[in-house]
Amino acid sequence: MIKIGDITINPTKIVCLGTNYMDHVEETGLEVPEEPLLFPKTLNCLITNNQPIIYPKYLYSNRKYNRVDYEVELAFIIKDRCKNVSSDKVYDHILGYTVFNDITARKMQTKDIVSQKPWFRSKSFDTFGPIGPVIKNTDEIRDPHSLDIELKVNGEIKQASNTKYLLFKIPETLEYITKLFTMEPGDIIATGTPGGIGPVNPGDIIEATIENIGILTNEVILEGEEK
């Protein structure tokens, strides 16, 4: 259960897309995907607007792992249980849209990718999934594919793009995912991040913004130094 603005959702999973903006594909050096590239985050990572992102000491004090990145993304929330949804019906199954920050232990992810291990542990530390500040419904956002998307660290712009550059748009994405899995009410789909990814450090203030949705603000705090 998590309250996003005035709406409480009870997700069973978070499905994330990787490499879904061309400029991000290029900066990762991964292939341009032929179909949506999916990975999971678990619910222990979810926090809301203004809650701290805890930078694990385990990563911070290990030179092999001491890089943690921000990734701003447009997320959508599933309205009802669905499977095998056709792309022309997807909006019937969407409750609304919000901002998601896919915090990633980058050096750990790179190490796991190179050794062909699952992309999991690097993505699912507690607090590595800020979401919010509100959910805007499908009447409030008529076209989710023309929204400016931006991320600032300490007031400096690090990512700036528009959702029109998504490689797989929402209809294709949900059609594909529901070919594989049953989606449940409250489930979260994060549609991928544009280029400009980079590290965060304890003390940083991260502001992730999507036009017509709002600003998701979180401070980064070193584990053990929580207020």
Binding site: G18, L30, E31, L37, L38, F39, P40, K83, I113, V114, Q116, K117, P118, W119, F120, L180, F181, T182
Partner: peptide, 15 residues
């Protein structure tokens, strides 16, 4: 997926 350095996810999570 593994050979393409992609996540182990979809192959494990069909209903």
């Amino acid at each position: 997926d593994r050979n393409k350095n992609l996540p182990w996810y979809r192959s494990k999570n069909f209903d």
